[in-house]
Structure formats: C-alpha cells, structure tokens
Amino acid sequence: MKHVLLLVALAACNPTLTVQSPQPPGRIARMDPVRTFWGLQRYRLELSRGVAIALTCDLDGPCEHMQVVSDDPAIAEVRPASLGVLQQGGLDGEQTSAALVVVGKAPGATRLHVRSKGKERDVVVTVVAPPEPGALTAAR
C-alpha cells in the first residue's frame, strides 16, 4: 500500500500540460491525457505535418526552469514560447505562464520530455501526413 501511495504521489507531482491554441480546420492538433488507475501517466499528441500547437506547463503553478526535449526533432520540433499571461502559482501568487510550441515536421512518432524542478512528463507525439483533398471523414 505504501508503494501505491508513493506512485500516486509521484504521478501527481509531475508537470501537467494544457493546450493553448485551436486546431486549424482540416488538420489535426490535439493532445489527450493518458490516465491509468495510478492517475495521469503521460500525454499523447497528434499533429498534422506543418501544424503547430501551443501548450503550457504547470507544476504547482507555471513550470519553473522548464526544459523540453524532443527525441526526434525531424518529426516533432519543440520550441520555447512566450505567452504573456499571468497564472496562479499555488500559494505564491501569480507568475508568467511557461509555454512551449510543438511543430509537426514529418510523419512519424517520437516522444517529448518536459522537465521542471527535477520532475518529468512525457508526451508521445504522432505526426500524420495532411489529408488528401476529399479524404476527410466524419470519423475523426
């Protein structure tokens, strides 16, 4: 039981991410949490090639000294972003948001590692080719 509580506590103490930009029409830019019994494990992000998505990082307020690395920048490039809004930082008042932008560069799969204060959260990224004209379905 002690190990279970430890795992839940660790999962809760890792950075969380929030989408800050809309998906363009006819393309994909969507991030969903992957949850298990133990709580939030990671995120899965689906992007069309050539499309960008803005995310913010939180860890008891905006992530401090956030670092983001892509395993394969040729598939998904990650860039620091400046989002000029204040956000509640736990009990310590407001801080400027910690933001990043992910760009779909080429079809394929890779993983992002978001780190702050020694904690890490992974994002599994799938970049898909843009649809051929007329190939869209309502099933998306």
């Binding site: 930009s21 363009p24 006819g26 393309r27 069309s48 050539g50 499309v51 960008a52 803005a54 860039r79 620091p80 972003a81 400046s82 932008v101 760009v103 843009p130």
Partner: peptide, 20 residues
C-alpha cells in the same frame, strides 16, 4: 497547395505566436 504554420519568434527563437 497545403497549409503551414508560420512561427513568429523573437531573435532568441522563443515563439510569440503562430498563424496557419
């Protein structure tokens, strides 16, 4: 033909905004 995000960045590469 297609769509591409145009990233608007500061001189240090930090993205301020983007437009598809």
């Amino acid at each position: 033909a297609g769509a591409a995000a145009v990233l608007i960045s500061t001189d240090d590469g930090s993205v301020v905004d983007f437009v598809h």
